[in-house]
Design a protein around this nucleic acid. Sequence first.
DNA 1: TTGTACGCGTTATCAG
DNA 2: CTGATAACGCGTACAA
Lengths: 341, 341
Amino acid sequence: MKIQKSTPTLEDVARRADVSTATVSRCLNMPATVREETRRRVSEAVDALGYTPHFGARALASNRTNTIGAIIPTMENAIFARGIQALQEALGKAGVTLLVASTGYDPEREAQQIRVLLGRGVDGLLLIGEARPQETYDFLRARGVPYVLAWSYRPDCPHICVGFDNRASMRALGERVLEAGHRNIAMIAGITAWNDRAVARIAGVRDAMKAAGLDLPATRIIEAEYTADAGGAALNKFMALDPHPTAIFCGNDVLAAGALREARRLGLSVPDDLSIVGFDDIDLAAIVEPQLTTVHVPHRRMGLTAAKILLAIREEGKGGKSAVFRTEIVERGSLAPPHGS
Amino acid sequence: MKIQKSTPTLEDVARRADVSTATVSRCLNMPATVREETRRRVSEAVDALGYTPHFGARALASNRTNTIGAIIPTMENAIFARGIQALQEALGKAGVTLLVASTGYDPEREAQQIRVLLGRGVDGLLLIGEARPQETYDFLRARGVPYVLAWSYRPDCPHICVGFDNRASMRALGERVLEAGHRNIAMIAGITAWNDRAVARIAGVRDAMKAAGLDLPATRIIEAEYTADAGGAALNKFMALDPHPTAIFCGNDVLAAGALREARRLGLSVPDDLSIVGFDDIDLAAIVEPQLTTVHVPHRRMGLTAAKILLAIREEGKGGKSAVFRTEIVERGSLAPPHGS
DNA sequence: TTGTACGCGTTATCAG
DNA sequence: CTGATAACGCGTACAA
């Protein structure tokens, strides 16, 4: 008596069902082409043995993995977490597995992760944003991997994108702030290196100001990591100015929440002494006090749409159309006209 | 002239470096056994071609995947996001890829995801908490997959765990609340079905109360999804009671933040009219106003330790020891003695 | 130190 | 409808 310790293989199943391995394989992949009776015998053997196909072998032989890869800056950001979760759900329903990797906003690590995922034979790739070294794009193209850029969209982008126009969105918010009467403005931006969303959001603010004949000099912009603490520290510097800004744009809601907290610590009242606006409309935006005026982005819908596009590309080999989402401004309590206007 | 469209293989590299495929393979896996000069030529060819080993082939030949799977309830929860991120970083440094799947708190989907990951040949598995059907454990054992339970620990747990004692932690917080003088208490708990953390946290509150000769009847507990809105709704119900509770325990910080917001909406002052305490100490806890008194849990360190254990198990085949973390109470502004004490 | 050759579990292409 | 059998890309004894 020998104990079957190792995982059962196709051959084990074939032997038990008294057919060839080819037939078993067909039962699993194209059941329609197998006689009813045979199929029954096979599937009986399959679950008697608790057989599971070996993924690696299957990938090797078929050159297909039913796998999509997503490479994001970090999981510790609610916006990616939500979107990726939605992506995963949609993919899962189609029988496709999602592999997630993160880069810490480092383009080199992104390139490396792309290799890893390609090595794992992903059928397609989701990347965040457009900013990355040309070599990375070259590599992608050389390999012929379908990829989609998410969370970012601009007119004339030469790639398949599913996202929204960060610049135009921020410009719209900028106009709203200017309409309220603010003229002394500053911005706590995200780190712009290899982050086109951060860059675009700055440009959006500048667009709005330029249209009003104003300027946003570099000295009025502080780049900060996407943490509440960094947002608070930046706010502190701005408030040391005299006169200090009456309105502060933040690269995202986390920065804005941090700025808000720091303002309170300084004894300032928001929005009476100072207006603060964010971006993304994550849950946090409606939890802090006052609630944040911000730009609402449909993260989950973007994840869903990305899934659709990725699946379509995978099926039809090529093609795939970009998808743009509209954002909208959510007015809450953190924005008001400046004093004396 | 033919364009190399398909992925380069070991053989391509070998040809280009003018060595055998075996040597290339060795360069990649046991560099020490290859002459310096040869190694140089090979690695040159490798990145000239942008070669990446084919995962499936490697898994097939070596019967090893360098892959660990993690199955979590959801990515949309900061505590898992942080822990998983840390896990991934630590695993990545060891050259191991992390596969993440999520279940939406559904044990059936968990069982299914386990199957999927096993099919992909993961060398080990990280699961959240201890509560799952016995069949799932049986299956795991039958397959001989090493697994670790995380975010949860209790004395006498028969599995390898890396976590903290939810019950004792919440009991400690409960004692603090009772010390402050509260006697009229309620709890907004997480959904307890298949969630031993939620169950343990309730038990912890009860332990503390029982020790003080008090009782927490089921009518003083509302189970809510881990969202701010659900927390707010639950708080609303409790405040309709007369007399209403003076202190409210929350299953986690998100529930607490939601309760806090709702309290403000009702015109209540926290902590003057009502004390609210949370659990987890996520960033949010220090952002809301007043800041939350809560239980600090070292999520990142747990992820790191889980990685270590998983890697060790993978290396040594079996074994592996549980790791317990101490939590600590963080006193902030949301807890104060009740009125008139 | 390096090369040869076989096998890993599956799919796909043929004949039957 | 089913069965041989040749890939698929890599790791690893075994030889040299």
